[in-house]
Every structure is written in structure tokens, then in C-alpha cells.
Design a binder for these strands. Sequence first.
RNA 1: GCCCGCGUGGUGGAAUGGUAGACACAGGGGACUUAAAAUCCCUAGGCAGGAAUGCCGUGCCGGUUCGAAUCCGGCCGCGGGUACCA
Length: 850
Amino acid sequence: MTRYAPSEIEPKWQKAWDADDVFLATRDPNKPKYYVLEMFPYPSGRLHVGHVRNYTMGDVIARYKASCGFSVLHPMGWDAFGMPAENAAMAGGGHPAKWTYDNIATMRAGMKTWGLSIDWSREFATCDPEYYGQQQSLFIDMLEKGLVYRKNAMVNWDPVDMTVLANEQVIDGCGWRSGAPVERRELTQWFFKISDYSDDLLAAIEGLDNWPDKVKTMQKNWIGKSRGLQFSFSVVDGPEGHDRVEVYTTRPDTLMGASFVGISADHPLARKLAAENPDIAAFCEECRKGGTTEEAIEKAEKLGLDTGLRVRHPFDNEWELPVYIANFILMDYGTGAVFGCPAHDQRDFDFASKYGLPITFTFEPEEGELNTGEAFAPAKTERVRWTKAYAWDEVSTGEEAVEAAIEFCESKGVGHGVTKFRLRDWGLSRQRYWGCPIPIVHCETCGVVPESKENLPVKLPQDVTLDVPGNPLDRHPTWRECSCPKCGAKATRETDTMDTFVDSSWYYARFTSPHAATPTDRAEADYWMNVDQYVGGIEHAILHLLYSRFFARAMNETGHLADSAREPFNALFTQGMVTHAIFQTKGADGRTEFHYPEAVDLRDGKGFLKADGREVQIVPSAKMSKSKNNVVDPVDIVAQYGADSARWFVLSDSPPERDVEWTAAGAEATHKHLSRVWRLAAEIDEAPETGAGDDDLLRITHKAMFEVSQGIESFGFNASIAKLYGFTNAIAKSKAGRDTRRFALKTLAQLMSPITPHLAEEMWAMLGGEGLIARASWPKPDEKYLVEDTVTLPIQINGKRRDEITVPKDMAKEEVEKLVLENEAVQRALDGGQPKKLIVVPGRIVNVVV
RNA sequence: GCCCGCGUGGUGGAAUGGUAGACACAGGGGACUUAAAAUCCCUAGGCAGGAAUGCCGUGCCGGUUCGAAUCCGGCCGCGGGUACCA
């Protein structure tokens, strides 16, 4: 070979690794274990550069740890259930199962060209009956432990298609297919009792030392522990059974500023009133319009209706407050009823302004703080009304004030202090086909009964129709029919399937024993768990990670995981997303059409469709998404420049945690660099046997070992690559003798091997390395080459760099000061005077203040 | 709306309280070549200057500090999540 030819090198070494079973994860009692996992992909059928980035990062860690002497588990699988398969079927793409497995085949083939160090013998898809059957078994175990229950909850309802919609299927408040305004409708659904673990999940965040702070903060806020007062208002002449309204507030210190009580449209009192009053019923219907997302509810115009009912203030029987039904109050949170204090809450202020309600101050506002059109932030703490009415004048703010108010109210017999969480139970029922069937049987005599484990898996039927909206399992002619596992009578199956988040909440545990006849094989799980390094997108910071933490706890309590695995991910790294512009046009029917990048010509910052020349609208920098068609396929890049170039390139420029906008330019430059590296190794025998500067090259080589390792250990892959560039340039320039040069190049190959494994093997072979580099030990620097005896200190004058001095590393501070004062630039600045201040930070910097 | 991030040359970025712009891309200049490709060398934040050097400069405004891209407060812009996208 006379040039770098990745298309020849890469398949060759991939075969060599396979033949030697290099990546097979084995329980080796003589080695520490290391489990590295990247979030498994959804088999959309298209690989994109985001996948390359994600899996290369994990692969660098896996290969690095393996060469550091760990027994590594690095598996891969497919998060295979979900809506896109059904959408594809509806669009004529064939059966969801065929579509999914075809996609997996395509993606697996693409991924295998990347040279990832994956133990493919552990591969599974969540839509394999073997996997979801164990999930059903787990569900039944959880049901028996009381971790699963049924209750009513709201869903998005399309009144034209008569079907439940996912949030993604609600576009501007309307159904994506029918275009009809969406409503909220109540359904009986299955729930996981994740709220039982609120405190545990919150408290354990403190122990997640190797998780990013931002993820921990997001999870804390999501769980949302709050301290407040729960109490009730008595209703003046309320309807029977509704003589009191229970409310929860986190701001009991503002109770004396209450001006109305708001209840949810789904509150029992609202329902009672709606049953008797058509106007109220109509308003409640109005409140149920729109989707179920928090965003839709919070951003919707705040609407209220005076019910005509009045309640009495708990501290003043004469003081009556109106009861409003309001569309922004959720039945799911707190008690479904609140009191409004417009003086100290912006939302209540807006509401009160709109409906002409009084604004009553609890605190004494400062002059000028009134009439600003905003609620008054309680910076001042004199409790005017509290003081005047009850001589309660404790001065405090924030949490203290809340706690004091709770104590005061409790002492007066008004309610009691309560801790609540924002976290709601996890609704897992989905009215869809392509998911794991919920293993439940409905029997007329026995009621809701779990399927018996011998009958698992409850398999999805193959013969379904997806040409009309709605759940195909519901309309299947025979699938529902079964016998009751308890009494044997004729019964029907539950037709809801599970949320696909369930599938991804325990797959990490299944990888430890992917073919066990129980959810886990405890010996295997106990050896491999926990995941030592988890790598994935920041978009999963809350839901997936929180659900997985909950499932690990549930699996511990059902005996499938050890106590030590209740917190399943020791370290988490959230990589940034690879973003790409979206190219969109308006179709004839007014819908937005999304176009693939390869279908668009870019000229002068504008885009035109190759097919018909129409101009496209360019939305810059959006998350790559199947539905937006803005994914970049890495197949072309691998075909043109090789996998090693693609791997190097996706890690090289941006820090791993940051989003990166993909551009085609640059991949070629990487290829040029790798060619240069290859040539350096290929030409080793042309180097003279003895040369000059061997010591310098040795020093540089050992320094590179140190710096590149440090980069990998700290997820600074871009920094490691910058050091590798520097190291390569130094080798190229060096005139050192052949042996030193060979040592430097072999070290370079090793340091590059986690990133460009094929090229590294090729270099290793050319340089006479023994065996596979994939099995070689990571190079350790010799300390004696790392120490420097002098240090260069920048000299600042008034904080601006003006000069520098090089001094022995351990020079005394006084000596340095003396030298600095003798410095020409300092002399000039001092102009014969004395410095006001002289700051010497040993080893770092000198600052002279004049 | 709410929660969490991010913002530095023409471009990707480095520097996490201590020399702003490492390393690279694109650019400019040069060597080699009949020529091109490939390769190698030099150059490069902006403004002024022949140069030495000076001033300005990390989204905007203000603060803390001997010293701020970095810490604090307030804005602006962009991105992620918002419980049925995965």
C-alpha cells in the first residue's frame, strides 16, 4: 500500500477483532469490570451524525477502559416500539414489525462499519417478544408489590377521528390528521406509583456525584418538593356535600391578601354546579378545550367564571370571597383548588385585573411600588393586615415566613402544614398497537386480573389494520378473547399497550443477561451493574432518567436487582445534540412539508428544491428529528473518507457536551490529517538510525500520554484531539533517531486507538507492534519526563499583560518580586516610583499595581 | 408561561478567577511543478503605525476583584424539557 486507504484497512481490522472476540464481555474474576452504555437508538431507519457522535464517545471510553485493564461491557440494542412505525404503516410503509426490523437491519449494517467495540451477542430489540414478555412479568411483579394501579386521567381527544392523540400529534391545538380542535377527555388508565418515591428520588440526587449539575437541578425542580398549608374554606350555602373547599397553598403568608378562590373545571364542586347550571357546564366544556400539555395550559388565555358561590375567609367570618372556576387550575396538582392573592402573585394579579377583583396587600408596599401593573414582590415584611387583625407581627421573608405562617395558622386551628411534590404518578397506558401489551385480563366475575406468568408473553397479533385511526387491538376480531387466569371463565384482554418509556427504563439491566428466562439473571446483574458510564442526549435529562431511576428501585423491590443498583447510573454524561437546519415549504393543503438536506441546493444562503426549484424556508440549528427530515446520513461520509475520519471529525471540534451544527466541510480535512499520520508510520524505515533531539521527542511523547489520557478521562475529547495534532506535528518536525521515532509513533497509534481504531491497528502493524493494539495496555507516562524545571510567568501591570519572565520553578516569592521590579517594562511603568501593590501568584502570574 | 442550558475572530472552538483566541477549518502569501493535484513553509481578532508599540475587544448594561470569557445582579437572543416524540 502506498497511501492511506480506509476502505481496505477498516473491514480488515473489523474482521480481525471479530475473529479474536475482542469485544465479548466476559466475567473475569481477575479484572475490575466497567459497564459503558450509550442510550440505545430508536430504529427510524436512518442513521445520522448524532448517532456517530454519541456512539463514538461511548466507544472511546469503552476502548480506553479495556486497554486500562477493565473487563468491559459495551452493548447495543434498539428502542423499537413507538409511534413512527404506526405512522409509517398508515402512510403505506407496511406492517410496523416489518418496518421496524427492516430498519434495524439497515442501521445495524451501517453502525457495524463504524468499528464500534460492541458486544453484539447481547443485542436485542424492545419489540422482541422475549424482551417485552419479561417486561410484562416485571409489570405483574410490580402490580403485586402495589406499585401499579388504575385511575382516571386526561388525554388529548380528537373529536372527529374519535381517537386519543399524543402531544406531538396536536398541532396548534388541533388534531394533526383531522385538523379539529382538540379536547381533553378522561380515561381510566394504568399508573406506576412513582410518587411513592418522590422523597427517595429527590434525596438520592445528592449522591449522584458524577452526574452533571444541570441534570440534577432539572430533576430536583421536576420532583418539586414544596412546603405549604392545606386548609379549607367554608362555603356559604354550598350545595349538599360541598360545604367546604379544600385548598393547598405554598404561600400561606399571603393568606390575608386572598381575594378569590379558584377551582378546576374538573373539581367535584364544579361538576356539581355544572350538572345544575348549563352556563357553568358550557364554561367547563370551554376549559377542557386544548391539549393536555403544561405548556398549552400555562400559555392559554386565563379564563374564569364566577360561580356565584361565596366562601368565608378562615380568619374572618364576615369576609367573603367569590369562587371562580378557572382554566389554569389542574385537578392533578394539590387539591384542584387555590386561593388567589393578586397583590403578591403575577398570575393572580392578571386574573384579578381581568375580572375586577380586589387587590389586597398583606405587606406594606414602599412608595412607588404600587400601580406598576405588576404584582408586588414582598420585599418589605411588615404584615399590615396580619398585624392589625391578630397582632401577629413576626418579621420574616421567604421560607421562614411560610413556616411562620403555617405555625400561626395551625395554632389558630386553620389547616395544617403539608409537604407536596410536583411529581405526578406515571401514566403508562397507551391506546396504540405498537407497544408492549399490558398483561391484564378483564373478567366479569373476578374483575381486573393479571395474566398468569405461564401465559407470557402476551404477544401482539400480526394481523392488524392501521388504515383507520384508533387502536387496532380494540377492533381486532379475536385477539381480546381469552380465559380468566383466576376462574377460567371467558374474559377479555386489556387492549392498551405500555408507554415506550417503560421499555427504556430497564434495558440497561437486561443487557447484563439478555436471554435470561426472568427479567434479570441475578448473578450476571450483580456482577455488571451499575452502569459505570452512561452517555446520552440532554433531551433525556428528566423523563427517561427519572423513570429509569424509579424502575431500578422497583426492580430492587421485586428482587431483580441488588440494593446497590437502586441508583443504576454511577456516572452520566450528556452530550450536546447535533443540530441541522430544517428546510420547509408550505404544501398545497397548507401543511408544512419538510425536505431532506440532500434534496436542497444551497445558493447565497438561500435554499431551493432540486426537484422543482421552489425556494425553501430555512430554519437554522434545530434538533435533528425524524419528523423534520433534517437528519444527515453518515453513510456518505464513511464511504468517502472512512469511519475513522468520521469518528475523529465528530469529536474534534466541539466540546462533547455542547450542541454542534453539522456542516459537510471539514470531514475532508480530517481525512488529510489521518493520511499524514499514516504516512509518518509507513515511512518509519526511512528515518536515520541516529538523529538529534531524541530527548525532546521523548519528553513530548510522555507529555502526550499524560495530556491525551487526561482529556479522555474528563470527556474532553476535543482537547485530546488538539493534543494529538500537536504531538503529530512534533513527530513530523523531529529529527530524532529511528528507535525514538518508532516509540513516539507507536505511542501516537495507541493514543489515537480509541478514536481511530482501524488506523491505529494498521500503524501498530506497520511499526512492528505485538498482537492487536485493541488488546495492548494503555501507555503510562514516566514521571521523570513530565517535570519542568523552569516556569514562565506573565507580568501584568494594572491587570494587563506587558511582559514575561522565566524563572526556576521553585524560586522564592521574594526573589521573583525582586526580578519583577528590575524588569524593564515595570521600571518604565513605575517611572521611578514604588508600586501600590505587588501580587505574585507562584507558578501562575505576577501583577504590578501602579 | 415555567424549569435547565448556551452566547468568544470569517468558521468550529481553547482558556472555569491569572498571558483571550490553543488546536483546526476556510483565507492570503511563498516553495516544489511545464502546469495542476498532492505535499511542505510562512501569515492571520479589530483599529492606528514603517516598526517598536498603543488603544479596543468574549451578546448588552451594571457590580465584586490587584486581576473577570469565567463570579454576582438585570436585560437581549438562541436551544432543550414541559409528563402521550423518542
